[in-house]
Computed example of a mutant assay.
Amino acid sequence: MRYIFLLFLAQLSLFASPVSSKIIELDTENETAKINIDKIDVGMSGYVVHHISPEHSSILKSCVVESFDVNTHTAMIKMKEFELLQNNALPSGKWKVTVGDSVELATSYSRSLLIAPNEEVYYQVSKSVETQWIHPDIFATLLSINGHPTPLKEDFGAFSSSTATGLVFIYLEKKLYTVDMKSFKILAISDTPLIQDSVKLPFYSRMEKIDASWFGEGSSEMESYEPHYYELLVENNKHNKVLYNIVKNSKNEEVSSLVDQFEIGE
Rank of each mutant, 00 (worst) to 15 (best):
N36Q: 14
E263F: 02
S162F: 05
E223Q: 14
L85C: 13
G147C: 11
L12P: 04
Y230Q: 14
T32C: 03
S58N: 10
K200C: 12
I59H: 00
S67R: 06
F68S: 03
L60P: 13
F15R: 01
Q261L: 15
E254Q: 01
Q124T: 04
S58G: 11
S256V: 11
Y225M: 13
E253L: 11
P202K: 02
D260A: 15
E119K: 05
N236R: 09
T150L: 09
Q124S: 12
A33I: 03
T163G: 08
T192K: 00
S57M: 10
N36I: 10
L9V: 12
N118E: 02
I4L: 05
T28F: 01
K22V: 03
S190K: 03
E235Q: 10
F139S: 06
M76S: 12
S108F: 13
K34G: 00
N249A: 13
V97G: 10
S108Y: 10
A89Q: 11
D155S: 13
F139E: 01
A188D: 13
S62K: 10
G100A: 03
S108E: 11
S21H: 00
E81F: 06
L105S: 02
V65L: 05
K174L: 10
Q132H: 15
V121N: 05
D27E: 10
E173P: 06
F159H: 03
G218S: 09
S219V: 11
L26R: 00
E254M: 00
N245C: 06
V42K: 00
Y3T: 07
D41P: 04
K182H: 12
A158L: 15
G216V: 14
E55I: 14
S250L: 06
D101E: 03
